[in-house]
Simulated scan of single mutants.
Amino acid sequence: MDQHSDDAPSRPRRRVTIADVAAEAGVSTAAVSKVLREAYGVSEEMRTKVRTAVDALDYRPHTGARTLRGRSFTVGVMLLDVAAQFQWEIIEGISTHLEPTPFQEVLITGGLDPARQKRAVEALLDRQMDGLILITPGMEAAWLEELGRRAPLVTVARHGPADSYDSVVTDDHLGAGLVVDHLVALGHRRIAHITAPLGELARPSVLSQTPRLDGYCAAMARHGLSPHVVEADYSEAGGHRATARALDAAVPPSAIFAGADSSALGTLRAAEERDLDVPGDLSVVGFDNASVAGIGRISLSTVDQDGPSTGTFAAELLLQRLDGRADPAHRVITPELVIRGTSAPPR
């Protein structure tokens, strides 16, 4: 009887190991590990060799072995909510940077309430995340410092000094000044600003709305103009309510600087409901340059703070933390004003 008949069970394929990748690339297993961990000091030539071998052998790190070595190779990412469009652009940058590494992002929403955010973070830690990236965290500074001592941590859009964790922020003060300078150059003098509530956070450890408010007030003072600030949460509905209040003032503004593109969309809706022409009757400028801002029918003038690059920087810093860097690092994104169809000289 033929012992090699089609009915004979086939042997399971042996799992490709890191040693196999090292042999294929002609390097040490330590070198392979460094490339997979995005460690410091890896040359581009070494990276190419290892990546080529990984692809050729279809190597996938063994999850069980990872856990035994004390790592889950997962990164916990907290965002505010699923409707926060610009935050998804940050996550895109995080995901793209982690894709060629063994690390996988795990997302959780924290909402606006700092207590709920803390519960979300604890849920990630309970699932043995190797590190954390928190987008716009609203917890008190002391709690974040303690968290940074418990796990590698990077915050996004949280201003202020930090001893135990890293941060990535936009120069929001500069961005707000760019908006005011642009509107003043067009001839506007009555410029209102929609800002989100500051909450219980105190300078210098604050979220982005605070330096944007400070930048707006400083730029208005520089031009000899009086500020007009309206507070509402950063959302389409919040921007709509704030715009209604601004337009109902005894002397309504000729331009509105919304602190987020989501708020600016509410401003556009409020203007449309009042039959106001944008930008003829009312100029509108946002902040974020979310993808919706570039849609032709919206064509929102806004400040670009490069969400994908922000996410890339955050992921890069976290990988460095996981590789052993202990000193805090702070990255600042330089914003740029993008002028589209919603800002023009006042009538």
Rank of each mutant, 00 (worst) to 15 (best):
Asp6Arg: 13
Ala8Glu: 11
Ala8Val: 10
Ala8Leu: 08
Ser10Thr: 10
Arg14Leu: 10
Val21Leu: 06
Ala25Ser: 08
Leu36Arg: 02
Arg37Gly: 08
Tyr40Cys: 02
Glu44Thr: 10
Met46Cys: 01
Arg47Ser: 12
Lys49Phe: 00
Thr52Cys: 08
Ala53Asp: 01
Val54Phe: 09
Asp55Gln: 15
Leu57Ser: 06
Asp58Val: 06
Asp58Ala: 14
Asp58Ile: 02
Arg60Ala: 00
Arg71Gly: 03
Ser72Trp: 12
Met78Val: 13
Leu79Asn: 04
Leu80Glu: 15
Ala83Gly: 05
Ala84Ile: 01
Ile90Phe: 00
Ile91Trp: 02
Ile91Glu: 09
Thr96Ile: 00
Glu99Phe: 14
Glu99Thr: 11
Pro100Gln: 07
Glu105Gln: 09
Gly111Phe: 09
Asp113Ala: 14
Glu122Asn: 15
Leu124Thr: 11
Gly131Gln: 04
Leu132Gly: 03
Ile135Gln: 10
Pro137Tyr: 10
Gly138Cys: 04
Ala141Trp: 12
Ala141Arg: 13
Ala142Trp: 06
Leu144His: 04
Gly148Glu: 02
Arg149Leu: 03
Arg149Asp: 03
Ala157Ser: 13
His159Tyr: 15
Pro161Leu: 03
Asp163Glu: 15
Tyr165Gln: 10
Val168Ser: 11
Thr170Val: 15
Leu174His: 13
Ala176Glu: 12
Leu178Ala: 08
Val180Gln: 11
Asp181Tyr: 00
Leu183Gln: 11
Val184Trp: 02
Val184Ile: 06
Arg189Asp: 06
Ile194Trp: 10
Ala196Glu: 08
Ser205Ile: 02
Thr210Asp: 07
Cys217Met: 09
Ala221Asp: 09
His223Asp: 00
Gly224Thr: 05
Ser226Leu: 14
Pro227Thr: 05
Val229His: 13
Val230Lys: 13
Glu231Cys: 09
Asp233His: 15
Asp233Trp: 12
Ser235Met: 09
Glu236Asn: 12
Ala237Ile: 13
Gly239Asn: 11
Gly239Ile: 00
Arg241Gln: 15
Leu247Lys: 02
Val251Gln: 13
Ala258Val: 14
Ala260Gly: 15
Ala260Arg: 14
Ala260Trp: 14
Leu268Gln: 03
Glu273Phe: 01
Leu276Ser: 04
Leu282Ala: 04
Gly286Cys: 03
Gly286Tyr: 08
Phe287Met: 00
Phe287Tyr: 15
Gly294Thr: 11
Gly294Asn: 07
Arg297Pro: 01
Leu300Asn: 05
Ser301Val: 01
Ser301Trp: 02
Thr302Ile: 02
Gly311Leu: 01
Ala314Cys: 12
Leu318Lys: 11
Pro346Ile: 03
Arg347Phe: 02
